[in-house]
Write a protein that binds this DNA or RNA. Sequence first.
DNA 1: TGCTTATTTAAGTATTTGCTTAAGTAAGTA
DNA 2: TACTTACTTAAGCAAATACTTAAATAAGCA
Lengths: 127, 127
Amino acid sequence: MENLNVCIRDKANPLQINECRNKMAANEDSFTQLSSILALTGNQVRLKILYLLNQEKELCPCDLSDILGMSIPAVSQHLRKMKDGNIVEFRKEGQTIFYSLKVEHLDLLHPFFSIINGKNLTVERYE
Amino acid sequence: MENLNVCIRDKANPLQINECRNKMAANEDSFTQLSSILALTGNQVRLKILYLLNQEKELCPCDLSDILGMSIPAVSQHLRKMKDGNIVEFRKEGQTIFYSLKVEHLDLLHPFFSIINGKNLTVERYE
DNA sequence: TGCTTATTTAAGTATTTGCTTAAGTAAGTA
DNA sequence: TACTTACTTAAGCAAATACTTAAATAAGCA
């Protein structure tokens, strides 16, 4: 970035800017991690898969393909992304592979499911 | 999709599949809306902007450009997406435009800010 | 009025995404 | 052993994304 288009208004608070910059630097890793998880949920197909896994406990690629009306490789590739992103896991039973949500990030995901179920956000606790 | 690669195992529960399919159809709009909001948060730059707006109440593109170390047009385009997505709004003061979070979706966003601040939702705290 | 400042918009581009089809793997089954 | 079945992986491609630079807009200010 050349940044020739600099804003030089004197109302800006350099102290505030600097504090913000430090905070960003300090939390760089958190932003990276969280945004990558949210990117996984920010796709309609994957959000549906996550919702279904939450509701049905576990499902195989075949079932998901059937429910979502899309090809098995397409589903499989979404599952791989989420497995790599550490929000789903699987177990094998014969040649069938059952996917499920990892407990680790359930707290992040649960409010999303509540929204979809129509239980509005403002009441989003469920203990 | 040609779906030649169909799974035909007999263990599948057609009743379960069908219920799921109905549920997906019934909530189609919710999935579309929520995933599009989550897609906005699933970008590191935008997540940072949202975090900063939450913390500083309001900021102009110029400040954000300065804090994030990126060009003003780049910031402006992210802000536009989020404005279109209805999660930020703005007010004008002279030639300066101050962006802020829309209250409407604060409940969805707040847990993200808590995670970044280290107040983790789950058990993995470290204080 | 003309010049500067703050911001947006537009056009161009490299990268990423999400599908497709085809091929590969691995666990039953005959 | 060979043939299914369930799934993954690879390659290819159209569309979307996120930046870049340059031009446009619009609000002060001299």
